[in-house]
């Protein structure tokens, strides 16, 4: 049973803390716990928010008190080993790299001392773990980018970065879900709407999943953009090959 601390975050939520570091194994424990809790039928649960090292549990004290809830959670932690946890999904995100869509690809390549194509190859070769979402709707905190393509942020942030832009900032990579100012080095853009408040599933990525980028050309970009505009594009997902453990 993992060593978990229950921390008070007010009187309608608590934080189940699984560790004090950013690691794939801690994140896997949080994911397993979250799935187990969702399946458990513990009453009064309102919402679960997994983050780097904890799962915030919002609950209704009118249904279950803090003491009763923590007792149930301890029981659940004890059974965690025996609960079947499906492998994480990999969300495939198509990206048109370079050119107008990725104005900083050349700089990233130069900074790394490799070709633009090599940057794209490296960027598309990894399955990036979504540790959590936060900051703005649909913004993913991803882990696992190769240090070969680490690049510092722009010295002068851009005033407006279009939604769908794929960028690198230091060791991080990610997709801008909405138009926003920012200092990331932009290497490409996805035609997929990661966030659309009026869609049935407003936000595509989910904590605990992985993202894999796939390089596409202009023709495919236009085709997907057209489908996405009509709400008809579905990102491909597949279960991750190696087991979740």
């Amino acid at each position: 049973m993992p060593d978990v601390r229950f921390l008070l975050t007010g009187d309608t939520s608590l934080s189940a803390e699984f560790g004090n570091e950013i690691s794939e194994s801690t994140n896997a424990q949080i994911r397993a716990f979250t799935i187990a809790l969702e399946k458990s039928g513990v009453p009064g649960i309102v919402e679960l928010v997994p983050t780097y090292r904890s799962c915030m549990i919002h609950y209704d004290p009118g249904v279950i008190s803090y003491r009763a809830l923590t007792k149930r959670l301890e029981g659940l932690l004890g059974q965690l080993g025996s609960i079947e946890i499906p492998p994480s999904d990999v969300l495939e995100v198509p990206v048109l790299y370079g050119g107008e869509m990725g104005p900083d690809l050349a700089f990233v390549a130069e900074h790394a001392g490799i070709s633009e194509q090599e940057v794209v190859d490296i960027h598309t070769s990894t399955e990036y773990l979504i540790y959590m979402l936060g900051f703005t709707p649909g913004f993913t905190y991803l882990g696992g980018m190769s240090d070969k393509i680490e690049t510092p942020r722009l010295k002068q942030p851009r005033v407006k970065i279009p939604a769908g832009s794929v960028g690198i900032a230091g060791k991080q990579t990610g997709v801008y879900p909405i138009d926003s100012p920012g200092g990331w080095q932009l290497i490409g853009r996805t035609p997929v709407k990661m966030y659309d408040p009026n869609r049935e599933t407003p936000i595509l990525p989910k904590a605990g999943q992985y993202i894999k980028f796939r390089a596409i050309d202009q023709a495919e970009y236009d085709e997907i953009a057209d489908l996405a505009e009509k709400g008809k594009y579905v990102c491909r997902t597949h279960p991750r090959e190696e087991a979740a453990k």
Partner: peptide, 29 residues
């Protein structure tokens, strides 16, 4: 700290030591 969730009414104290009460439009983490 390593980012975690923020509830309504959380009293955040950054290194400068002055409290900030987090309210309705607070960030989620």
């Amino acid at each position: 700290i390593i980012s975690d969730g923020i509830a309504f009414g959380a009293i955040q104290v950054p290194t400068a030591g002055k409290p900030i009460i987090m309210l309705a439009d607070r960030q989620t983490t």
